[in-house]
Each structure stands twice: as C-alpha cells, then as structure tokens.
Amino acid sequence: MNEKIIIIENLVKRYPMGETEFTALKNINLTFDKGEFAGFVGPSGSGKTTILNILGSLDTPTEGKVVVEGEDVSNLSEKASALLRKEHIGFIFQSFNLLPVYTVFENVELSLLLLKKSAAEREKAVTAALEWVGLQDMARKKPPQLSGGESQRVAIARAIVKRPNIVLADEPTANLDAENAHIIMQTMQKLNEELKTTFIFATHDEKVMQYLKRKIHLQDGRVSKDETMETKTLQL
C-alpha cells in the first residue's frame, strides 16, 4: 500500500473581499502518495496557488483538514509550521525568489544552514544538488549573472538540497522559454525518479502538463477532474 503523504478533506478557503467573502477553494478532497509527480492545472483564479500555499503551510484552510507529513496544517503553531517547511517541504516559485546578494552556492546552502547542518555536510549536499541540476560550474556566480533557466535550476537545487519529502512548484516554467521549460521539467522528473521526492505543481502551462503523472483539474475552486497519466520518459 502506498504511503499517504498528504490528505486533504473537505478543504474550503475563503478570503474576505470588502464586505463579502470570496471562496477560492470549495470542498476539496484529495490524497497524495509518496513519490507522486502531480499537478494542479486550470485557468487563473481556479485556486491552484491557494491550495499549494495551504499544502506548504504558508496559508491555512478556512474549513476542512489538510494533513501534510502527519501534521494537520490548520492547527499548527507558527513555529511548528515553520519546522514542517524547514524539514519536509521545498518550494519552487515562478519568479525564482533567489536572494540576490548571495552566490548560487549560498542560495542553495541556506536551507541547510537553517537545518543547522555542519559545514562539511552542507558542502557535500550543495555540490551534489548543483550537479543534479547541472550548475556545478556556476557555484560562485550571483543570481543577476544567471539566465532565467539557470536561476530556476538554482531554485530547484535549493528546494531539493535538504532532500525534502515534498516539493511544491508554483508555475515553475512561467518565466522560461520552451527549451528551458523542458530542461527544468526533465530535471525535476529525474529527481522525482531518483530521490522519490513528491512533486506537486500548480500550472496552466501545457509544457509542464505533459510531464505530469497525475493532473488534478481545478475549475472555480473545485476539482473538476483527477486523472492519472501515462507520461513520456525523456532522455536527458
């Protein structure tokens, strides 16, 4: 039996909007197994990013239950939710969110610093992560010296360097050209296969969708379709 890494039950998320409320997510029920390569797909405003933020414990549900790595994120203290993110979740953002004054190495190293890893452990893990994404020669460069594709690969290395169980990627290819988008997706696919890391995407990019093994279609905050795909395996 597959290990359930995420359980979502009757999830509702509402936002105040003036005197009324906007319901971004309506009664979502889903589970994710360890090692999945899945994605929320749908048009803008369908609730993809909202659900990803809740899974990442950056936001909380209005109603329902979301259990990530055995922790109910709706009841977590700030400290506990920070710990959950620090130890188990890696993030990849659309605009990379790299720290501009740090080098590539230091950007990737940061999550290990937060985990209080020793210098030797950090050196080893960062080098390995940069090798996975093919940026071992760029360790001393700073983000402004990198292309969009390279920046996103640094962001991937930063997300996976601590070997999290879950990586949440919000529109990871939105700022990239087609070639770089494929390279990024292939890199993540490889990491998913080699490290058994669970990848969950939020995207409306067709280039991303073709790599997903599971597509969860969101429409107006509801799951309209949950399909498991036969994905092509690409040679890197």
């Binding site: 920070a82 993110r85 969110n97």
Partner: peptide
C-alpha cells in the same frame, strides 16, 4: 518583501 517571504517559506519563523 520577496526575500522575507522566501526565508519564511524555507522554514524561518517571522520572529527569526
């Protein structure tokens, strides 16, 4: 702000 958000996403508390 983005840097602050990134630090929080990576596991720092707001207090930190």
């Amino acid at each position: 702000q983005k840097e602050i958000g990134t630090h929080i996403a990576m596991g720092m508390t707001k207090g930190e």
